[in-house]
């Protein structure tokens, strides 16, 4: 490259920054004045070649089912998703049992009536409320958001969810807490309508993991990340193959370019010699 290389490289670097800075700026925004510092946690799925911990996802599903599903729907997930690779990977029998534990509405039947029947693998997760209005009515006007993509719908993702679930505190002195709200260190504005959902021991764990709020929060955050990105593992794996392919391809193309252009340089030398 003939033009001054430093400005050129700087331009590309700055362009790259220009793409990334707004994201960083937003994270900063979330940290200042719109919520608290969200600490980064260690997640098995965070590194480029990371994957989910199957046992953790299974525990996280239990926490969702026993606690969160009482108010929060998850309408983009079906019971069959629980058996997919790269997820909690429950056995088909376990999924049949899990699905059959809930009653879902089906119909109309031959008489025109809707009826209840046990769930099947293909059914979407049962919603706790028939619609948003019913949800609000049951929750003092607040709408518990659907959790299918919550891990991507909030700055900080699973870090934020973990911070929120472990962020319930007594309000500091002088803080004006509205009637019916709870103080939370992570929630923007620090006042959240959701009461603290987790308490030590509220969900029994069968694999030896301690049933503490901290573990519940970690496990359900990981589960929610999987729910939002069920293809994460497939994406990481394919990504590795594609990057290696492209790296080798780049080397080959560079050598090809040099080999082709060698003729030109030879021609120039032939003329100048």
């Amino acid at each position: 490259m003939r033009i001054a290389r430093i400005p050129a490289a700087a331009l590309v670097a700055l362009a790259g920054l220009g793409m990334v800075l707004p994201g960083a700026a937003r994270a900063e925004e979330a940290a200042n004045g719109h919520g608290s510092e969200i600490e980064a946690q260690d997640w098995s799925f965070a590194p480029p070649l990371g994957s989910f911990n199957q046992a953790q996802l299974q525990r996280g599903y239990r926490v969702y089912k026993e606690i969160c599903a009482n108010c929060h729907s998850m309408r983009f997930l079906s019971y069959r998703n629980l058996g997919e690779l790269g997820g909690p990977h429950f056995s088909p029998k376990a999924i049949e049992t899990l699905a059959a534990q809930v009653q879902v509405t089906d119909g109309p039947d031959d008489k025109g009536q809707m009826f209840q029947r046990p769930g099947r693998a293909a059914d979407p997760f049962r919603s706790p409320f028939a619609n948003d209005q019913a949800a609000r009515a049951a929750n003092n006007g607040a709408l518990p958001p659907d959790l299918s993509v919550i891990a991507k719908a909030r700055e900080g993702g699973p870090d934020y969810i973990y911070a929120l679930l472990t962020g319930y505190r007594k309000p500091p002195a002088g803080f004006d807490l509205t009637q019916g709200m709870q103080y939370n260190t992570a929630f923007p504005g620090h006042q959240i309508a959701m009461p603290n959902p987790l308490v030590d021991g509220v969900v029994p764990y069968t694999d030896g993991t301690k049933p503490t709020v901290d573990n519940y929060a970690k496990d359900v955050s990981a589960f929610l990340m999987w729910a939002a990105e069920p293809k994460l593992e497939e994406r990481h794996k394919l990504g590795a193959r594609v990057m290696i392919f492209l790296l080798v391809f780049a080397v080959i193309m560079y050598l090809s370019k040099r080999a082709v252009w060698a003729r030109l340089h030879r021609r120039d030398h032939a003329h100048n010699a």
Binding site: F245, I252, M253, S256, R263, R267
Partner: peptide, 27 residues
């Protein structure tokens, strides 16, 4: 050759061909 350098006699056509075949295969 002053207009088409591709006509300069080659020093090492076989090595260049291998690399180009590799490039084509990857593509």
């Amino acid at each position: 050759i002053s207009t088409d350098p591709s006509l300069v006699p080659d020093d090492d056509p076989s090595r260049r061909d291998v690399i180009l075949i590799g490039a084509g295969a990857f593509a």
